[in-house]
Write a protein that binds this DNA or RNA. Structure first.
Lengths: 98, 98, 98, 98
DNA sequence: CGGACAAGTTTGCCAC
DNA sequence: GTGGCAAACTTGTCCG
């Protein structure tokens, strides 16, 4: 068992109804299904994004430019939260605040 | 302007208020904001997926294995719809059904 | 050849001295050695960076904070060049300049 | 102060010119700049490596295979020095050589 | 050892 | 249809 890839809590007795090799199949199934549902939603939104770009292109906009604008603004936002995190780090380093 | 990349509907008169070089800034802004909103939702869902994996790991499951399971099922689903599409194509070719 | 992984220019005659399966061993060796030399230099520099962090930590600085500062400034630089690229894109979109 | 994260040499008197909360801003700046310079060099070399791969690809080689070759040789080298270290340990343990 | 960060690989998209 | 480009995911490494 040492070097094996396991997907199993409670590696032991294997006596309950739905466990195989220590795996609770029901629970695993539940996790998988939750993930699949979320992945589906994510894919749907990705499709929506594509649609918006298509629409913009359809009325004459250059998607490349729009992508640049979006990326730049995302970087701004990211930079802003990083700066906040830095400030927080400073505060800790200086012993100010909790 | 002929061979140029354009980001402009109606490249002509340039007389309305918020247009520069044929670009409607308002409309561009609208597109950008719609995309950003969708990207945000997408990121949120990606976060949810991460959370589910974390939860699964927290109760002893191996996330790597679960990822494999999800990928395999996605491939199956893809294959299945591909097969369905092929069947549909055949049906059309044979004049069966709509 | 279709689905094979190949590392071979000129898949054909295989008649020169140092070719095996269409691979020029000498040339391959040359590429590999150039890469290895560069990787070595890169690793050396990475080591130097580690040393600087260690030195800073040794005199009482918090490496986490320094890393944040470095990351933040790197993001600034990246943002700046992205902004320049955006401006360039705009110029093209507007037909200004080349 | 015992359990705090500190970014400060000499946490005490706080009386010199450029110290805030025990942090010497100049010294911090120096560390950051040294790191940034090294990071820049590292990035340059990484770029060179990319260029070599591109060149190899340009004359028909499969970069993925080359990467595998490089990785294998690196592993071999690592293994070899590990073996040498082991031999050295043995020599010391047996009192042979220095 | 466990998570955080970087590197590599893969996949999907867009232009040609 | 293809090939490059960019983004997402996966994997390996390093620090705490």
């Amino acid at each position: 068992m040492a070097t094996e890839n396991e997907t199993a809590p409670g590696p032991g007795h294997n006596s309950e109804k739905a466990k195989v090799g220590g795996i609770s199949a029901d629970r695993l199934k539940s996790f998988v299904e939750r993930i699949e549902k979320l992945e589906e939603e994510k894919a749907a939104i990705a499709g929506d994004i594509k649609d918006v770009y298509s629409e913009a292109k359809g009325v004459g906009y250059d998607t490349k430019t729009i992508r640049k604008v979006v990326a730049l603004r995302a970087m701004d936002a990211s930079k802003r939260s990083e700066a906040a995190a830095l400030l927080d780090t400073y505060c800790h380093a200086l012993g100010i605040l909790s």
